[in-house]
Design a protein around this nucleic acid. Structure first.
Lengths: 216, 216
DNA sequence: AAAGACGGGTGAGTAATACTCACTCACCAA
DNA sequence: TTGGTGAGTGAGTATTACTCACCCGTCTTT
């Protein structure tokens, strides 16, 4: 009987929400499947949700604010697995490879997420002060950084480049190698991209002073 | 007397333009200095230019189309130098270093360009079918690719990764290492960033089978 | 020189759309 | 009973990108 203790998942979040709010979120989600954000009007969202337009503004600051919440819902299930999925893997570079593959795979299998992150919210000034942004940084970017720092500490990764810089290069590369296919809706091959990226980056970041105890 | 032959520069372009068009372009440019694109209205542009609003639509398809033209004007003087500036340098990696430094330096010294490229036009679907985009690809992206391919041919760069992939990683890294500072208007240090990026990437892309004659 | 095409330029207007105001209704606490 | 609170709405508004019909001067054509 004491088995479930904390397990706060998406389901709980939805259950404590007023039904109208849930309907609005789901409405925007379903509209994003068929057209891009800028082409979706608030009237359309309300109509699809079966609620009145002002209700959107009762629950969300803006149309954009609503988008940030929707983006978070989309990312939720993916990001939840990220940390766990790294647990079983030993070796920093193996963890990084796994991370890279997962990132690309999310973009490959969910174009809405890819488009929102690479093209839409990126240009919205308010995004960088939103809860969703904070959450992504905490859950994802920090995880990546931890892996890199761990690699530096155990001597697998060179220590003459700031870890945050390495992360920037990694994340920038990830986004850019998918960008063309995201924009033009072409297929993405996670395996091939992962291979090439690892080939290139790993040789750039690995510690050449010997595999272990490479502390200067 | 036969000294000047082709020399078509910005000045010529402007001179063959109707004065209203020039005024509109200059108006948007000066407005971009003080506020972001989305906050600028067409009425404001017309007022600043001292022309009527419909004239904008006589000369440009949209407000966005105008932005693309303005972006091209901004980039014009910078990109014109790119190819020339590489001429004197020998060694592919040295050329790449120079290229990297120049790219970062443009972002560091011209925040409007940086913001437009990284945040604004990136999310506009129409941009990727605009003349400006074609032009950037031709003048800049192709130059980068040529340098990389030259490096592969002469054995300085490894040949087991597609040159276009290397370019993607390079350009993605460049954009992403500046992104935070561009968004939050913080200073960018081109020298430091160039050093770190070259340290990381060069080891990743250089050919380890010997410096010359590395053709497989 | 008349006709007319053409390009730059404008005054007045319009459709669309994100967002607001004032309000109702149901529920719950004191 | 009263009053507060939060979900929800009908009607409205300000803003804004964009358009229509039109004017005028300058070339070209016959």
């Amino acid at each position: 009987m004491t088995s479930e203790r904390k397990q706060f998942t998406k389901r709980d979040i939805f259950e404590t929400m007023p039904p109208g709010k849930v309907k609005i979120i789901e409405a925007l989600k379903s509209l994003l499947e068929i057209k891009e954000y800028d082409a979706i009007t608030t009237a359309e969202i309300a109509r699809t949700a079966g609620v009145s337009e002002p209700l959107i503004y009762k629950h969300f600051k803006d149309k954009r604010d609503l988008l940030y919440v929707v983006l978070r819902h989309y990312l939720d299930r993916h990001l939840a697995r990220f940390e766990l999925d790294l647990k079983g893997i030993n070796g920093t570079l193996n963890k990084l490879r796994r991370l890279i593959w997962m990132h690309i795979n999310v973009y490959a299998s969910n174009r809405i997420i890819a488009k929102l992150l690479s093209l839409v919210v990126r240009g919205m000034p308010g995004f960088y002060t939103s809860e969703t942004y904070d959450w992504i940084v905490t859950v994802y970017a920090k995880t990546v950084l931890n892996v890199i720092e761990e690699g530096i500490a155990n001597g697998e990764i060179r220590n003459d480049i700031p870890p945050k810089f390495i992360r920037q290069v990694l994340l920038g590369s990830l986004e850019h190698i998918c960008l063309r296919e995201v924009i033009f809706d072409k297929d993405i091959d996670p395996d091939e991209l992962t291979d090439n990226l690892c080939k290139l980056l790993f040789r750039g970041i690995e510690n050449t002073n010997g595999p272990t105890g490479g502390q200067t």
